[in-house]
Design a protein around this nucleic acid. Structure first.
Lengths: 209, 209
DNA sequence: CCGTAACTTGAGGACCGTTTCAACTTTCAC
DNA sequence: GTGAAAGTTGAAACGGTCCTCAAGTTACGG
């Protein structure tokens, strides 16, 4: 870990502006937003953006890292919830709520942008929390025994997909969708599943599009 | 309905080749595949493609129309299934299987390409069949009473989204996902839903991205 | 076999987003 | 202050896809 020399005052200010603009742009338009637009919004030339952030990924990391942190905090809070089912539901709901709020963060969840160390770290932590919470719920008999964390990943992936479609029209539609789907994860609902769950490594290699 | 004069022999042959190439390309790479690539694959210049198909939509309609027809047939067969729950499950499974097979058709389901009369007609028919099948299942008490066709649309939308991620890695993953989700639609699983269903018109206006 | 209408061709213009870089400007340590 | 290092700038090169159109080719009725 090399200690980076501090940025010059004006450069630091520009960096700050860029991150802010990126935050806003990613949130509203997703990760595909043109970098030129972010630079313009930040009141800075495109070259400056490239000066500070070598790749889109670095900018994403800087802009959305805090949100990923927030996701971890929420998951930790969920893990502390007494009722195991409620803990599980909170995990899913809180995560989805963040995705619903921020198109960029939703894209991160799916697209695996490269060059995002802080986000990657947060994702890893989330994975662990998810496993813990699901294990507890299963042990308590409130979550069907045959679902794995990878199943939840797929389910949330799917719900995030519907958000893209409904965000402008019915921003809360995902809540109904999620409730419906969660009902399928209760033990009373359980019917045999046709195939085994995705392995963690399969999920890791899952790529969109 | 103007009776189009028949194409010249060579033109008809080229058209055929284009449709075939488009079928293949859409299936494998989705609707965003460059038209140039389709033309190349068809052994024809790009200008010829534009000669025959004024827009991407027209080509999509020609290439994927038959698949949409097939979807309707499958849905009609599902509607004829005696067991109301099985009918419902077949509807969902058969539809999803088509999407899993054909990235392009999956894209059609989400993106509402314009200029696709035959596909649009098929979709309308599918909508009606879905309503019928779901109504029957509800009447039989095998489908929870508080789900609407728009809910199924959202659910399938979501599953189609996960297909994009898993197609190359675990082409059947959607079967497990769907089973899980369908379990949430059974009456035994029902817990109160937080918000009302999407209206049909809301769904119609739903746009991706 | 011919003439014409139908068709094909592919280079090129338009647009868009990315990325680079040489010339210019600003900061800051001394 | 001053000069070197740090930073900014935006035009331009680039790669990709869309779409057009003038020139050339082909089919087919007579």
């Amino acid at each position: 870990m090399t200690t980076a020399r501090p940025l010059r005052q004006d450069a630091a200010r520009n960096r700050e502006r860029l991150v802010l603009a990126a935050c806003e742009a990613f949130r509203r338009k997703g990760l595909d937003v043109p970098l030129e637009e972010i630079a313009r919004e930040a009141g800075v030339a495109i070259g400056t953006l490239y000066n500070r952030f070598a790749s889109r990924g670095e900018l994403v990391d800087a802009a959305l890292g805090p949100l990923a942190q927030r996701a971890v905090e929420l998951a930790e809070r969920a893990a502390r919830t007494e009722d195991p089912w409620q803990a599980f539901v909170s995990l899913a709901e809180d995560t989805c709520a963040l995705f619903a709020d921020d198109r960029g963060y939703a894209d991160v969840y799916r697209s695996r942008v490269s060059g995002t160390p802080v986000i990657a770290a947060a994702q890893a932590r989330l994975l662990a929390l998810k496993a813990t919470i699901m294990a507890r719920a299963k042990r308590a008999g409130v979550l069907r025994a045959d679902v794995e964390p990878t199943d939840l990943a797929l389910i949330i992936w799917g719900i995030v997909g519907t958000m893209d479609a409904t965000r402008d029209i019915a921003p809360d539609a995902w809540r109904r969708h999620l409730s419906l789907v969660l009902d399928g994860l209760r033990p009373q609902a359980a019917h045999p599943l046709p195939i085994p769950p995705l392995t963690a490594s399969q999920l890791r290699n899952a790529a969109p599009k």
